[in-house]
């Protein structure tokens, strides 16, 4: 933020929100937590995620994101992403029936040279994929699959949901429009920004047999 005061205030808000989140998390460990407590936790997470996404995009627009390249084990990364995804955790409540998010080992393709390791900013990519997951669980019927594919000089992340099947292009269009207009449209913009700063990145949302496929790809090493 250009204004030092706004920067300070935003930082304060983020810290306070983090503490609130941890308090609510602890509260929700209790068996007798009322429904309101759970709802408050959910809202707090949503709010924090939105604030972090917004701050990340804001930084991208103002000064450009500087990815911190570290070595990442891709299979572990996907496994953790799925296990800890807060949007996946919340998925059920949107629909009233359970949506299962899978780290899809069958589809994971480690590159022959890189052997399933990549250099990228794991926190930025996690933030981007979390927003893609968030989108996927909102439209999925039952199931979301997540995996990576490693090509010669590219890392590809995919999120497949069983939401809009073949011939349901109308729904896909609807999703793309929603992405543009709604406040949660932050998500796609964030994914674009994150893939671009890693080099030669792109983001795609397409209808495939059996569902809708989100793809984010970027160059393997910065």
């Amino acid at each position: 933020m250009q204004n030092p005061l706004s920067a300070l205030v935003i930082h304060d808000i983020k810290n306070a929100l983090s503490l609130l989140e941890i308090d609510l998390e602890q509260l929700n460990h209790r068996k007798d937590t009322p429904l309101e407590g759970r709802r408050a936790y959910r809202r707090c997470i949503e709010l924090k995620t939105r604030l972090v996404s917004f701050l990340t995009l804001y930084k991208h627009d103002q000064s450009g994101l500087q990815p911190a390249m570290v070595e990442v084990d891709l299979a572990e990364f996907i496994e953790d992403l799925v296990r800890n995804s807060q949007s996946a955790m919340m998925a059920e409540s949107h629909h009233g029936h359970q949506i299962v998010v899978h780290a899809d080992n069958e589809r994971m393709k480690p590159g022959s040279a890189a052997g399933g390791f990549g250099m990228f900013d794991e926190n930025l990519v996690e933030l981007a994929l979390e927003s893609a997951l968030n989108n996927a669980v909102r439209y999925a019927h039952r199931r979301v699959d997540v995996w990576f594919e490693q090509e010669a000089d590219e890392i590809v992340f995919r999120v497949l949901d069983d939401g809009a099947g073949v011939g349901e292009l109308g729904e896909l269009m609807q999703r793309k429009i929603t992405e543009k207009s709604s406040s949660t449209g932050l998500g796609l913009a964030l994914c674009k920004a994150v893939s671009e700063v890693h080099g030669c990145g792109s983001v795609q949302l397409e209808s495939v047999p059996g569902g809708t496929l989100f793809t984010m790809r970027f160059r393997a090493a910065g």
Binding site: N28, H29, R30, K31, T33, R38, Y41, A75, E79, V82, R83, S85, A88, M89, M90, A91, E92, S93, Q98, V100, V101, H102, A103, D104, N105
Partner: peptide, 16 residues
Amino acid sequence: MANLPVQGINALFSGG
């Protein structure tokens, strides 16, 4: 490594 389905919201919220 087995596929890891995410625990439902209740599993996470039901304490323990």
